Simulated scan of single mutants.
Amino acid sequence: MYREALKQLINARVSHEGMHETGVKGVQLFKVTQSIRCAPAVYEPAIIAIVSGAKEAILDGNRYRYDHRQYMCCTMSLPVEAGTPEASVDNPLLGVYIKLDTRVMTELAIEMQNTVGAIRQPTASLQPQGLTLSDWDNTFSDALSRLIQLGDNPQDIAILGNSRLREVYYAVLKGAAGNAAKRAFGVGNEIARSIEYISTRLGEAITIEDMAARVGMSRAVFHRKFKQATTMSPIQFVKAMRLNNAAMSIAAGANVSAAAMEMGYVSSSQFSREFKRMYGLSPRQWSPVKQRAAGMI
């Protein structure tokens, strides 16, 4: 019932393809009417809730397909391949994109951790995935509906927007993705903090020793926990982030050499070899149309 009502609300407010602001900071509605194969993108911490159609994301070879039955929760920046292979004019992809505010999520996660029984404590030896799928439950559906029902009324958005967004965050922390979100934003968020550090320094030399030292771990422990969280080793992660960002820059019209240098490559031949090994095409053969479309959401 919630999702059908949400579908009608979004259809009424989104008349054309693309991302549409709601007035609430970090919350956008989207519509996609073309089939797009999965291609390199970078997911930032966010919730993506689909009300019609389906979306796909691939992380280190693992494929995630989500539709109106499950929402996607990404708790840290991740290099993925993303696409909308089933979208069409007759069956458009409709949904809601919600950026996760680090400050608010951290406040909620720590407050819940300090409240006995508010959220199940994760097993200490496990590091949840950075990208998880969660079934829509009544708490999440109700909170999301209340947020979208604000519509375009500036007064309602100004007075109620932040509190209703906070309700959605709380619903996520209580749901199946709650443990992953708690690890990323609450106590014990070392891997998420290291990824935030990496993401702002992709053009610099980064070593595992530096990353481990910043979060107070040994090299071996950091490597193990990092791979548990992202499915990739730290070095694989850095390379994938650099190449995905470069691919998106090239698709947007950037010069190949400039895109490579921005990501810390000093050798254009090395960049070309690694790019072709990753994507099967040289940087100059890369398709801007395909990449721009795949990176919409």
Rank of each mutant, 00 (worst) to 15 (best):
I50A: 12
L243R: 02
R103H: 09
A54S: 15
F237W: 00
N179V: 07
E111L: 05
L108T: 02
V24Y: 05
I119H: 05
T106P: 00
E17M: 09
L9Y: 02
R242H: 00
P85H: 00
G216L: 01
L78T: 12
K290R: 14
D67I: 07
P128R: 03
S287V: 01
E81W: 04
V24H: 06
S77Q: 09
T200F: 13
A294Y: 06
G280C: 08
R219M: 08
R63N: 12
M278R: 15
M217Y: 13
V116H: 14
S88P: 11
T102Q: 09
Q34Y: 07
R164I: 04
E56S: 13
S163D: 14
T33W: 06
G188A: 07
S272W: 04
A54P: 03
T33I: 13
A229W: 00
Y2S: 15
M72D: 05
Q113K: 04
T22I: 08
G26T: 11
I58K: 14
I58S: 13
E56I: 12
A171S: 15
K174Y: 13
F185T: 07
Y43K: 09
V96T: 10
Y64D: 13
N189F: 09
E204L: 11
A205V: 15
P234N: 01
R224I: 01
V256W: 04
A41D: 15
S218Q: 04
A184C: 06
T75Q: 01
S15P: 08
S199T: 09
S282R: 14
